[in-house]
Each structure stands twice: as C-alpha cells, then as structure tokens.
Design a protein around this nucleic acid. Structure first.
Lengths: 106, 106
DNA sequence: TTGACATATCAAGATTTCTTGGTAGCTTCC
DNA sequence: GGAAGCTACCAAGAAATCTTGATATGTCAA
C-alpha cells in the first residue's frame, strides 16, 4: 500500500512545517536550555503575546513542544522525541552516498 | 552576534519549508534512487505539469535538488549535501538528553 | 521549415498561514 | 469580592503559498 508512505509524508510535512518559521525557530532555541514560561519567552523575543501563543500552538500541535500549567503560568518544554523523529524522517530522505556502498555507518 | 543565529534560522526555515509539502516529499522519494527526468516524475506522480514544475523550482531554489538539461529533457537529482545540511541544522535543535536544569523563570 | 514535444514561466484565483487587536478564563493578591 | 496578571482563543485582515490554465522557449524530427 502506498498509504504508509503517504502517512509518513504527511507526518514529515507537519513536522518540517512546524520548523519552517523563523519565529518558531527562535522559540525553539530558547527552549534548548530547558523549560521556560511564556512570560520568559516574551521577554526574550519581542513579539505580541497572541502571536507568541499562536506559534506555541503550532509547535504543540506538531508535538515539538509540550506544555504544563502551574498557577497563572504556562511552561513549555522542547520535546526531544519529536526532534529525534524529525531527524529519522530526514535521514530517510538522504540519498545513498555516491561512492560508498558500505552501510556500516549511518 | 545575533545575526549569525538569525541567518541560521533563515536557512533552516528555507530548507524545512522546502521539505514541508507532501507533493515535494513524493518527488524527493522518487529521486532517492537517482536522477530522473521531469517526464519520468510526471509518470510516477499524477500532477499537472506546471504544478510539478513549480514544486521542482521550490526544491531547486532551496538547494534540495539540482537540475541538468539535455536536449528537450531536464533531469533532476537530489542534492545529498542539502539533506545533510538539514540534518545538521536539525541536530542543533535537539535538546541534550536526560536531566536538565530548570531555568529560573518569572 | 514545420510541427510535435518537453519544460519553464506567467497571471489569476484559491487556499493556507500569519498577524493583530480584542476578549475571556483562570489564578493570585489585596 | 474586586482588581490585576498570565495566557489562550477568536475574528478579521494581511500576506504567503499553492494550483490551474495559458503561453513562451528551446529542441528534435520529418
């Protein structure tokens, strides 16, 4: 069935789309050193609150970040598994090296 | 310099955007086994010619594929270096594994 | 030369994504 | 309780992307 590849492509497209916006990449870089609350992200980036919220939602819907509520604050964390998944999907798009046929190394 | 990160983000966004469309991912999968002419791609995929041409241009502009003309035909090849570049950019977005220090926030 | 063919490009409309300003739901503090 | 703070969500407009049909460009074959 071609359906399995179609599903893989759909998931790849979703993940890569989440990663294809500069504002979202800035958010991700801030989250690289661990969990941050929205207010913290707002301090680092200079963006409208609703815009930040929108991009966080895109990231969350794609599984790239997870969130946690604590009192008034929301904390976001980069989801390592999603990045690893993206790496795996991307590696599947890398053509075999021109000369080498040895598959001893990824 | 913040500029270096901004440039990296811009390039990342460009690459990931090229990879964030299902039609383009289908093209890439066909090119995985080597060079193909446009007519060949058209046989495999069921898309309008101008649509195919558009997506090939997006891929080419991002450096994901290269093209070569021979007589009436155009041949496209997946650019391994671009995929490797994307892998490298993606790896930089992967948080360190294991425990992390909670950043003081708010 | 003429005609058929392969592909790129263009313009217009359709669709999706993004931004902005406003508002509403919680929560905490007074 | 009321006010203030933090964040999500919504609606409308703006902007970007995608699709489609038409046309242009270059090539080969007769």
């Amino acid at each position: 069935m071609t359906t399995a590849i179609a599903a893989t492509n759909a998931r790849s497209a979703e993940l890569f789309h989440a990663l294809s916006d500069e504002a979202r990449l800035e958010i991700i870089r801030i989250l690289l050193d661990g969990e941050h609350c929205v207010c913290d992200l707002q301090d680092h980036l200079d963006v409208a609150q609703s815009r930040l919220s929108y991009h966080l939602k895109v990231l969350k819907d794609a599984g790239v970040v997870t969130d946690r509520r604590e009192g008034r604050w929301s904390y976001y964390t980069l989801n390592r598994e999603a990045i690893v998944e993206a790496e795996r999907l991307l590696a599947a798009l890398r053509p075999a090296s021109g000369r080498r046929l040895i598959a001893s190394c990824c």
